Simulated scan of single mutants.
Amino acid sequence: MNKKSILILAFFAAFCFIVAAGCTGVPTNPTPVPSETVHYPTVSINTTPVKYVRVNGVDLAYREYGSGGEPILLNEGFGETQDTAWNATFLGIVATKYHVYTYDYRGVGYSNDTPGNHTIAEYADDAAALMQALGYSSMNVYGQSMGSCISQQLVIDHPERVRKLVLDSVSYSIRIPEAQNLYNKIEAVANNTTPASPGITKEAYACLAWNGTWNGLSGISQNTMLVVGTADVITPQAIAVQMAGQINGTWLVRFKDLPHIGNHEAPVEYGENALDFLGMNESPPYANP
């Protein structure tokens, strides 16, 4: 073998060694890829003006957030008002894509009242009438705690008024064993063991008189999402699981270790979850247009 051939072989061997080293080598200090952080606009609840509309003989007080997208009506929980019911970050997230309406039930917050006690069905009638008074034939609906009871009654009594439905911290009745803590809380207010305003006391009477919605759940055809925290002891996740089996095609979202009404604990997660559900096209490819 001549000298030229030896040099060529040596060069080829060195080349193969370099290529092999390059293919198998691992960088000692890989550069991390920064994760993208989404910055949502904030809303100020207290500085957002309260407006009024006449509905079923009362002046219901409401606020609105966001200016575009489909409308969504938020039904607040027992003993709450629109000042305290919703986390501002949660509202801001939902308002990025939807026109959000919060309001006070008759007799609480900024809304006035009529004589006598009320029913869950009456609160649902108010919600349906409020939509029309605001210029909508229907809205998406998000209800939490007592608001989820009103939202269930709304979709059963006025199905044409509801587009998509979110039931957060939900029960179909307060008289089932799983909801004993909820029942005790409501009863204490009704019996004046826990002092409350007249409007909230009327809410308690309405909850105690409510017959629930179990028999009507299977008739709900709207796209529905149930949301619950696994640490919720007021409306435990077992109730949502039962309801998911009754409502065809229901989403069931369980947030690990979060309590009753978790949007205050995890507003970003709850807000993004709501956007995912509301924005999802759930019509199958074979559905008729």
Rank of each mutant, 00 (worst) to 15 (best):
M1T: 12
K4G: 06
K4T: 10
L7P: 06
I8Q: 11
L9F: 14
F11M: 13
V19G: 00
A20Q: 13
G22K: 06
V26W: 11
T28Y: 10
T28Q: 10
T31L: 14
P34D: 11
P34R: 15
P34H: 11
E36S: 09
T37P: 01
Y40A: 02
V43K: 00
N46F: 12
T48M: 01
Y52V: 01
R63Y: 12
R63T: 12
E64I: 04
Y65G: 00
G68S: 13
G68N: 11
G69A: 09
G69I: 03
E70C: 07
I72R: 04
L73Q: 07
G79T: 05
T81V: 09
D83M: 00
T84S: 10
W86N: 01
N87F: 08
A88M: 01
T89F: 02
T89D: 08
V94R: 02
V94S: 04
V94G: 07
A95E: 06
A95S: 15
T102F: 05
Y103D: 05
Y103V: 04
R106L: 03
S111A: 03
N112L: 06
D113E: 12
T119F: 12
I120H: 02
Y123E: 04
D125L: 08
D126W: 06
A127P: 01
A128N: 11
L130H: 08
Q132T: 14
A133P: 00
S137Q: 14
M139E: 00
Y142W: 15
G143I: 02
Q144M: 10
M146P: 05
M146W: 04
S148I: 05
C149K: 02
I150Q: 05
S151Y: 07
Q153G: 01
L154G: 02
E160G: 10
K164M: 07
K164Y: 06
L167R: 02
D168R: 00
V170L: 01
I174V: 15
R175W: 08
P177S: 05
Q180W: 11
N184R: 11
I186K: 05
E187C: 03
A188E: 12
A190W: 09
N192E: 13
A196M: 12
G199K: 03
I200Q: 07
K202D: 07
A204M: 05
A206R: 01
T213L: 04
G216P: 03
G216V: 03
T224D: 01
A231G: 07
D232L: 03
A238W: 04
A240C: 15
T250L: 10
V253D: 08
R254P: 08
R254E: 13
L258P: 00
L258I: 06
H264S: 09
P267L: 08
V268N: 11
G271M: 04
L275H: 12
L275W: 12
F277Y: 14
L278I: 06
E282V: 15
S283P: 03
S283K: 13
P285Y: 14
P285I: 09
P289G: 13
